[in-house]
Every structure is written in structure tokens, then in C-alpha cells.
């Protein structure tokens, strides 16, 4: 049984259209999944930032007993006293992290001025916990950036970029960490 030329052409055209449709759906789903992963990773950053904020707040409370003025000055560095607002952008969170880092390095300076603090067991435990939250924050930041790299690569690569444009998917912002400020918060045990 032979098919007519017209039927053959029609089958080829339908097959090609189906391939394009399936490819389009595949890329779209991949982008949506990656976007979800980026959001998940961003909430990981929120959790780590909140933990770090809580720990540093407790540390400031402890230092108040030794250096009230310095602690109150440091408290004012942080923009969001109640933690991270829900609609905060990645850039704003970066800024928040930077403020927390300033507080952490400020506490380090206070510790140098008031050696008695080093003997306070509660303070030492908090210091260790803050170092731990810093590690968690770095992990969350790296995971977020790795996911952003994956999604951005698809968004800018042709022909997937056509799908990304069609569904109005834009490049995601990286969560940057300034190396200098990160170095400042390293604790000495």
C-alpha cells in the first residue's frame, strides 16, 4: 500500500508540528521546574538569614551587659528590625545580609575591647551558633546561585530562549556576597 504524495507531506508536517509542540512543552516545563527550584532556594536563603538575624540579636542582647552604647549603635545598622519582609527582593536581601555582616564584625570589635565577654559561656555558644548560621547561609546562597545559573543558561540559549520569551520568563538575579565582608565575619575560636 502506497500513500499519495499529499498524504505523505501531511504526515511529515503533522509529525514536525508535534515534535515542535512537545519540545515547546518540554522546555516550558523545565523552565517552570527550575523557577520553582530557584524559589525554593530563595526561601532557603530567607531561613538562613532569619536564623542569622535571630542569633545576632541574641548576641547583641548579651553584649549589652558589657557594652550598652556599642550594642545599641550596632542594632541601628539593621534596616528590618522584625526580620525579612515577605515582598523583599533579592537585592534587598543582599543588603540585609551585608548589614548583618556589619553587625557581626562590630560584635567582633566589641569582643576585643571587652575580653570578659570571651569568658561568658552563653556568648561563646552564640558565637559558635552564628558561625554555623553563616555556613548555612553560604550553602543556601550557593544553591540559589547554582539554580539561577541553570535557569539563566536556558533563558539565554537559542532556541530555548524563544520559549522563555513566549512565557515572559526573565533572567534571575544572583545573590552576591562581597568577599571582603564575608571575610570580616569569620570568628576566631
Amino acid at each position: 500500500m502506497f500513500l499519495s504524495v499529499g498524504t505523505t507531506v501531511l504526515i511529515i508536517v503533522v509529525a514536525l508540528v508535534l515534535i515542535v509542540v512537545f519540545w515547546y512543552i518540554g522546555v516550558m516545563n523545565r523552565l517552570r521546574q527550575l523557577e520553582l527550584k530557584v524559589h525554593e532556594a530563595e526561601s532557603g536563603i530567607d531561613v538562613a538569614l532569619t536564623k542569622r538575624f535571630d542569633m545576632l540579636t541574641k548576641m547583641l542582647e548579651t553584649t549589652k551587659g558589657y557594652a550598652k552604647h556599642e550594642s545599641e549603635t550596632l542594632e541601628k545598622v539593621v534596616k528590618w528590625r522584625q526580620g525579612i519582609p515577605q515582598n523583599a527582593t533579592v537585592k534587598e536581601k543582599e543588603e540585609f545580609m551585608s548589614q548583618l555582616n556589619q553587625v557581626a564584625s562590630g560584635i567582633n570589635v566589641v569582643v576585643e575591647q571587652y575580653p570578659d565577654l570571651k569568658a561568658n559561656t552563653v556568648f561563646l555558644e552564640l558565637q559558635s551558633a552564628v558561625a554555623n548560621t553563616e555556613e548555612h547561609l553560604q550553602a543556601a546562597r550557593r544553591l540559589y546561585n547554582a539554580n539561577v545559573t541553570q535557569i539563566n543558561t536556558i533563558i539565554v540559549t537559542f532556541p530555548q530562549s524563544i520559549v522563555a520569551n513566549a512565557i515572559h520568563m526573565e533572567k534571575k538575579a544572583y545573590f552576591e556576597a562581597e568577599e571582603k565582608k564575608r571575610a570580616d565575619v569569620e570568628f576566631k575560636f
Partner: peptide, 10 residues
């Protein structure tokens, strides 16, 4: 957990 992997594997 992906986050744990990033936490351990610095």
C-alpha cells in the same frame, strides 16, 4: 537534601 549537599560540600 540539596541544601545539605551544598552545606557539606563547600
Amino acid at each position: 537534601s540539596e541544601l545539605s549537599a551544598f552545606y557539606v560540600l563547600t
